[in-house]
């Protein structure tokens, strides 16, 4: 029973993998590997930059606010 499940999962993974290798693209991608790679790289780059900026700022802010916690502040 368990074996069947594992086999099924393996089959699903294998099929997804094969679909990837078959390049099932509807309108074919650029023939230049460098171009495809450039799109992947800039995708990663553009995604990372804003998250790093915002994340870094929030991290800095938290630290700063902790430092300032001695400042007068209410909460009844």
């Amino acid at each position: 029973m368990r074996l069947a499940r594992v086999a099924l999962a393996a089959a699903v993974v294998a099929v997804t993998w094969a679909a990837d290798l078959a390049y099932a693209c509807p309108s074919c991608a650029s023939p230049l590997e460098e171009n495809r790679q450039a799109f992947v790289d800039t995708t990663v780059f553009l995604t990372i930059v804003p998250l790093m900026m915002i994340g870094g700022f929030i991290w800095w802010l938290r630290r700063k606010i902790r430092e300032m916690d001695g400042a007068p502040e209410i909460h009844p």
Binding site: L32, E34, N35, Q37, A38, F39, D41, T42, F45
Partner: peptide
Amino acid sequence: FSGLISAFVIGKSN
């Protein structure tokens, strides 16, 4: 500027 640099990287790759 990230957008411009990305555009340039893609432009180069073409």
